[in-house]
Computed example of a mutant assay.
Amino acid sequence: MPAASVIPPVLAELAGKRAFVTGGGAGIGRAIAAALTRQGVAVAIGDLDPDAARKAAEEIGGGAAAVTVDVRRRDSVEAAFATVLEALGGCDILIANAGVST
């Protein structure tokens, strides 16, 4: 069996969980969101760019939700998390992937 088809036990236990991935509109965050979705995780993709979040959610599929969030602003994070809770019915996993440069 090829190594790529082997699912580590920890990933197999993720099915049915709910995750919020910040910085999920592109790059590593998008790859994480896609990998979680493939394991049966309901994913909310957070990004500063609403179009990037929406496009990633559409392309990843699996019912992924797009959420606009600016992780530099507390009010934006609170509003985004409220949206995640509403969209997914809860949150079991938080991937704080968004990068901020000053």
Results as ranks from 00 to 15, higher is better:
M1D: 15
A3Q: 15
S5I: 15
V6Q: 10
I7E: 14
P9R: 06
V10W: 14
L11C: 08
A12D: 14
A12C: 10
L14D: 05
L14R: 10
L14I: 02
K17A: 14
R18F: 13
A19F: 03
F20P: 09
F20D: 13
V21N: 10
V21L: 07
V21A: 11
V21Y: 10
T22V: 11
T22R: 07
T22Q: 05
G23F: 08
G24K: 03
G25D: 12
G25H: 08
G25K: 07
R30F: 02
A31N: 06
I32Q: 14
I32D: 07
A33D: 05
A34G: 03
L36R: 06
R38Y: 00
R38D: 15
Q39R: 15
G40V: 02
G40L: 07
G40M: 12
V41M: 08
V41C: 09
A42E: 13
V43G: 08
A44K: 10
L48P: 09
L48F: 10
D49R: 03
P50F: 01
A52L: 14
A52G: 01
A52M: 07
A53Q: 00
R54Q: 14
R54N: 08
R54S: 11
K55L: 12
K55V: 12
K55W: 00
A57M: 00
E59C: 01
E59A: 06
E59V: 04
E59T: 01
I60Q: 03
I60Y: 04
I60L: 02
I60T: 03
G62Q: 08
G63S: 01
A65I: 07
A65F: 00
A65G: 06
A66M: 02
T68M: 02
V69Q: 05
V69P: 03
D70Y: 04
V71T: 04
V71F: 01
R72Y: 01
R74Q: 14
D75K: 00
D75F: 01
S76A: 08
V77W: 04
E78W: 06
E78L: 12
A80E: 08
F81W: 10
F81A: 13
A82K: 13
A82S: 12
A82D: 13
V84W: 04
V84L: 11
L85Q: 15
L85I: 13
L85D: 11
E86I: 04
A87T: 13
L88K: 07
G89D: 11
G89A: 02
G90Q: 11
G90T: 03
C91N: 08
C91K: 06
I95C: 15
I95R: 01
G99C: 01
V100M: 03
V100E: 01
V100I: 11
V100H: 02
S101L: 13
T102M: 11
T102I: 09
